[in-house]
Design a protein around this nucleic acid. Structure first.
Lengths: 198, 198
DNA sequence: TTGAAACTATACAGACCTGTATATATTATG
DNA sequence: CATAATATATACAGGTCTGTATAGTTTCAA
């Protein structure tokens, strides 16, 4: 049961944290939803903060895998991969359970700058941007431009998630997609690298 | 004293809500910070929710005025006004007390979709976007394109605020500015309206 | 100066929160 | 079967939260 129980708790808590917010979800609510005993929860997660951090780690891993496999499933063309990221996110935004970005929300809920939760959110955000920068370079954009472009694309995605959270069914990610196309074209025109000579 | 006291409470609460988060700021904390009696607070604001809503209204009005006067102070050229919005926000992001967008944060803290707080955040977001759409039309962009552009620019600004909140001193708004320039140019090239004939 | 309105001070009710203590039941393993 | 680990059930300690009750003080105006 060991690993199963831990996983069951984490899965349930993760879903509640995302749906209702972290501070709005009490430990007792999680206990009731899992059907386990409170003591068991505290055995696997010594404090609520530990559970929250595990939830962010888990979300990070799920999103990472989901994005990567989503890209692979859509295209193998380096340039198209950048746009495929937006397709993956569009799908995410259209799920009925969408409630914004778990990391943006966590960052808003935990204001203290040094907080481990704040830090975990920042780490995901940066690692995601780096993935975009990698894709941009593979698409033939020089490093400096790829860095700048990756920041712009990640901001578009964050902005679209925030917009969709507030204005439901606004198709925000489609609008972001169109902007991304323009920005990517511009980056390619600005400083292309001939893949043959790179 | 009447209006003064109400204003004093609201000002203090607003600052604490923004700095620490809304749920993390208790009524007693506000009472202590203002130096007033708790009964006085509950006289002017029958519940904490009322105070939170007043805080959002207040923030909305302050931001609106700040943006408009910031634009006026910078340029009178319609096209430059769109970019001036990014300058105003850049200044905001560079203040040491910057802690993200009050409306994005409130939206993240209060998950329930129908919540008045969620609604207030959505209303600000939409009114801000409409302002951008107005500026875009004044700059000679046709309505349909102006609508689309305004969504893209507002997402860039939201995204930059989120990024700066997580990665402090990342100059996110400068990166957003560069993206905005490209998107605005594209919109102008796509479907310009001759101001003389419009 | 007298009386009403506004403000303060303090205490507290009742709910909720995290985390723990304790005693019991279930499961796995020798 | 016996023993140890694992999970459960229940209660509760100690804290914080929103909101109210009550009594006293200041302010201001007639």
């Amino acid at each position: 049961m060991a690993r199963n129980l831990r996983e069951h708790i984490l899965q349930t808590a993760s879903e509640l944290f995302y749906r209702q917010g972290i501070k709005a979800t009490g430990v007792d609510t999680i206990v009731k939803a899992t059907g386990i005993a409170k003591m068991s929860l505290y055995k696997y997660f010594p404090s609520k903060d530990d559970l929250v951090l595990a939830h962010l780690q888990r979300s990070r891993e799920i999103m990472r895998a989901h994005i990567l496999s989503g890209i692979e499933a859509r295209t193998s063309d380096p340039k198209q991969k950048l746009l495929a990221v937006f397709d993956v996110f569009e799908e995410f935004l259209e799920t009925p359970s969408f409630r914004g970005c778990p990391f943006i929300n966590a960052s808003a809920e935990f204001a203290e700058e040094a907080s481990p939760i704040q830090q975990a959110a920042a780490e995901f955000s940066e690692s995601f941007r780096k993935m975009l920068a990698g894709l941009a370079q593979e698409a033939g954009i020089a490093e400096t431009n790829a860095e700048e472009l990756s920041k712009q694309l990640s901001m578009l995605i964050s902005g679209a998630m925030v917009r969709e959270q507030m204005q439901r069914n606004s198709k925000a990610m489609l609008t972001a997609y169109a902007a991304a196309e323009v920005l990517i074209e511009k980056s390619l025109a600005d400083a292309p690298i001939d893949p043959a000579t790179a």
